[in-house]
């Protein structure tokens, strides 16, 4: 994505999103500039957004934290980016995603991808309903310019516009 495109789109009014990620990531599931003192608070912030959007009950947030306690910080799949998730369970009310940007980068203890600036929370009802949305997340995460735009977004609208723009280019 070109800088000029990004500048243009983020200054415009919010545009509606029709992509698979937009459908699973409502504005209520996004928070920017969250203050987290450690990785648990960062994961909890992503979990709180899933709860706020009606995707999960709070127990799912605890489960996401337990995954990292049990299996390590492998959820930090790319530099600066953690994909917080746990198993499908009764605490997942509907498949959904959340997105939290951190005011200060937080260490998860990952050997090569610390520190984390962006946490995406994933709640899945099954093993497939979210795969199109995850494909978009994966493509965005491999685009350094998009990741930078998300991590430094000043508002929820800026995050949404960056995603909508990306989905427009990569349907």
């Amino acid at each position: 994505m070109l800088h000029s495109d990004l500048d243009r789109v983020t200054k415009e009014q919010p545009v509606s999103g029709t992509g698979s990620l937009s459908r699973l990531l409502p504005a209520t599931a996004i928070a920017v500039g969250v203050h987290a003192t450690d990785w648990r608070e960062a994961v909890r912030a992503a979990g709180d957004r899933l709860v706020a959007a009606g995707a999960t009950r709070p127990g799912y947030t605890d489960a996401m934290i337990a995954v990292v306690e049990d299996l390590g910080p492998y959820i930090v799949v790319a530099p600066g980016f953690a994909l917080a998730h746990a198993r499908p369970s009764d605490d997942v009310l509907q498949t959904g995603l959340s997105l939290v940007t951190l005011a200060e980068p937080v260490a998860f203890g990952h050997a090569s991808n610390d520190p984390v600036r962006l946490v995406v929370g994933l709640a899945a009802r099954d093993h497939s309903a979210h795969s199109d949305a995850l494909a978009t997340v994966a493509a965005m995460a491999s685009d350094a310019e998009v990741m930078g735009a998300l991590a430094t977004a000043a508002s929820v609208d800026e995050v949404l516009n960056t995603i909508h723009q990306f989905e427009g280019i990569n349907p």
Partner: peptide
Amino acid sequence: VCGMGIGTSIILKMNT
């Protein structure tokens, strides 16, 4: 392979 088979491993599969 990932912990749950629903998140990180799907990203890895797509990029593989």
